[in-house]
Simulated assay, not measured.
Amino acid sequence: MIQIKRMADYDHDIRDDVADVFVDGYYRNLSFFTKDRTKLKAAFCNLFCPDVFYVAEVDGEIVGILACSNNRQPAMAIDKPSLKEAFGFLMGSMAYLTLDKEFNAVLPYEDDTGYIECVATSERARGKGVSTALFKHVMQELPYRHYILEVVDTNVVALQMYKNLGFDIYERKQEKLSRIKGFKERIYMKWSKGGVSDLPVDLFSCKRLHGLFYS
């Protein structure tokens, strides 16, 4: 059975477990900074914001994560010293420049909108409904009326899952340097409780792009 719990509600430190899943899920992108998984865990372990991170457990083991951030609370607080300590001065500085605007910037959404990001499942638990369980928990239990997420065109499995959950595409954006990055489009999707979205259209033109950490 999959059990969902907010990271902040644990009575013991689970940052290492969350970092394990995060690195496992995004290793392809994170390996640009270093291929050493231990260093990657050390770099991001203290950056997660527990109030907006939700974790999935199977048989007492954390196997999935999902963040639902908002205009007051980011998913991660990017910290230059942590990145420099893990990656070294040059690569740590580059990582900070890459991630600072992506995660430390305030989301341009109203109080009734949640932004879903940092969705990851450990390799051994994929295909078992972990991410779907996390989504359903957040969509049912959190007080937001609207949910927004971003996915790239090459991530067809995630795109289909989001469609199955009821998310609709509202915009596609061509990606610059697509050959280097490995995808052509960023796809923006939304879901509203009750099935009717009254989000203002001009809101969608102001987005935070999570350069490396796309779903």
Score class of each variant (00 low, 15 high):
Gly166Cys: 08
Tyr109Thr: 10
Asp9Gly: 03
Glu110Lys: 13
Ile169Glu: 15
Asp100Val: 02
Cys49Thr: 14
Lys128Leu: 13
Ser31Leu: 04
Phe32Lys: 07
Phe135Ala: 05
Ser192Val: 00
Asp79Tyr: 15
Ser82Cys: 13
Pro81Glu: 12
Phe135Asp: 03
Glu141Asn: 12
Val18Leu: 11
Leu134Phe: 08
Ile116Asn: 04
Ala19His: 09
Thr113Asn: 06
Arg186Ile: 06
Lys35Gln: 14
Asn46Tyr: 01
Ala67Met: 04
Lys193Asn: 07
Asp202Gly: 02
Gly195Lys: 10
Leu90Ile: 14
Lys190Met: 12
Glu171Asp: 12
Ser192Tyr: 07
Leu159Val: 08
Phe48Pro: 09
Tyr54Ile: 09
Arg145Ala: 10
Asp17Gly: 07
Ser178Trp: 06
Glu117Met: 12
Gln160Ser: 15
Cys68Trp: 10
Leu199His: 07
Cys68His: 00
Lys163Thr: 10
Val138Met: 12
Lys184Cys: 04
Glu185Ile: 02
Val152Arg: 12
Ala75Thr: 03
Tyr162Phe: 14
Met91Gly: 03
Met189Cys: 07
Glu61Met: 08
Gly64Glu: 05
Asp59Ala: 14
Leu66Tyr: 11
Pro108Leu: 07
Met94Ser: 06
Tyr109Val: 14
Tyr214Thr: 04
Lys193Gly: 05
Phe135Lys: 12
Asp202Ser: 14
Asp16Gln: 14
